[in-house]
Design a binder for these strands. Structure first.
Lengths: 227, 227
DNA sequence: GTCGTGCCTGTCCGTCCGGACAGGGTGTGC
DNA sequence: GCACACCCTGTCCGGACGGACAGGCACGAC
């Protein structure tokens, strides 16, 4: 077992010490991570943040090398974590962002990488895996656990629901309105096209989705996540 | 700060020592919790489990006083955590189940309590709050952080979507079929009633939901969680 | 240019749907 | 008994819908 590091590393610490910031809205999770990471002599948790705004402020003040970011989701705002990821990587290009999250979603891994994340680790990882990932990212490399890497590959190769059904962009627009219960007339009005055209698109959508009634299409759309 | 306890408490330890089992599918979260809890001299993490099956087996072998249970959800199986909670509280009536989870859902707190949980703490709690909750549950009391308690009260007073809309049981049945895109004829066939009657119910549903088209009703139903 | 694709518009027709009638039956509670 | 809620059934009608015609326009690929 590694020896415990003191809460404050002495001045003149090893230049290879990695300064880490934790971003997670759950205090207990931050505590747990801090407790784990501080057992490693070369890792130092120098800051924490619980929200997007706090993270942006604190990262500027403390300048960590690594941000350990929980993408959480499933709470109120869908893409807060992704937004933060994008903002951080834009404002601090050298910053190593390592996503540590609960969710392993094929598309999410991709979106995180596109938002500037240099690593993606599911919380299901063990301590050594996490620490290895942190050191990798600190060295400028990327770090993905096996399942995240696989998910990324799948995400790249898995077409979206719309693509799977070969829906055209216009049809996607119509579907999203259709899925909200709008009538053909309403859809036409909303898209500045005639009711006939709306009907034309709806017909194509029904055919492509393999259903015959619009209510059924709404149900399919809700399953496909179009709503 | 409390002193660190050795990994194995010596025989003849304080009888008031609380033996804890951690149930969370994320190894890193378990590690973090263990690390936090073992700073307290009266708390001892004697077991961990990552799944429902493992938890049931391990709790029988190790007989902890407290199970710290992550209800997680949002993963594959919806009610695995709740099921486990119910099974544990039925098989081991004296066991103190403290739910420690990411989600604060009004209905979920209630369901957890009905499933036998003696406490509910959101992971957003700080260390002292969690430890206090564990000690409370170990003493046979219940433990809810302020927001969970409030959520429980709300959950008790918030009627379900169907109740809010004053839908009759039969209308709920019809709505669930309607929401799957079935036609009046299909609904009638499925419920062994005439198409006319299905239409009658659908009409009442539309009126009660305040919509005029069934596709709109499907959309509302998907928002209300009827699907 | 030709072809294919996406997008827009129209007509016709049969069906389904939604709304409004008008009943009958059951069970519960007062 | 009576009122009430819930459930079932039917008819009528106008409008919405779904399917199948038949066209037009713009754009990029070959």
């Amino acid at each position: 077992m590694a020896t415990l590091t003191p809460p404050e590393a002495p001045p003149g610490a090893d230049v290879r010490t990695v300064d880490i910031m934790l971003v997670d809205d759950h205090a207990i999770v931050r505590q747990g991570l801090r407790s784990i990471l501080e057992r490693e002599s070369d890792l130092r948790v120098i800051a924490e943040a619980a929200s997007r705004a706090e993270a942006l402020a604190v990262v500027g003040a403390t300048r960590p090398q690594i941000v350990l970011l929980d993408l959480k989701l499933s709470t109120s705002s869908d893409s807060e974590g992704l937004d933060l990821c994008a903002e951080l990587s834009e404002q601090y290009p050298g910053l190593g962002i390592l996503v540590l999250t609960t969710f392993l979603d094929d598309a999410l891994v991709l979106r995180a990488v596109r938002a500037g994340a240099r690593g993606y680790v599911v919380k299901d990882v063990d301590t050594s895996g996490l620490i290895r990932a942190i050191r990798d990212v600190a060295r400028g490399e990327s770090a993905f656990d096996a399942r995240s890497a696989a998910a990324m590959v799948r995400g790249l190769n898995t077409p979206t629901a719309a693509e799977q059904k070969h829906l055209t962009p216009r049809e996607c627009e119509v579907l999203s309105l259709l899925a909200r219960g709008l009538s053909n007339r309403d859809i036409g009005g909303r898209l500045y096209i005639s009711e006939t055209t709306a009907k034309f698109h709806v017909g194509n959508i029904l055919r492509k989705l393999g259903v015959t009634r619009r209510a059924e299409a709404v149900y399919e759309a809700s399953k496909l996540g179009v709503i």
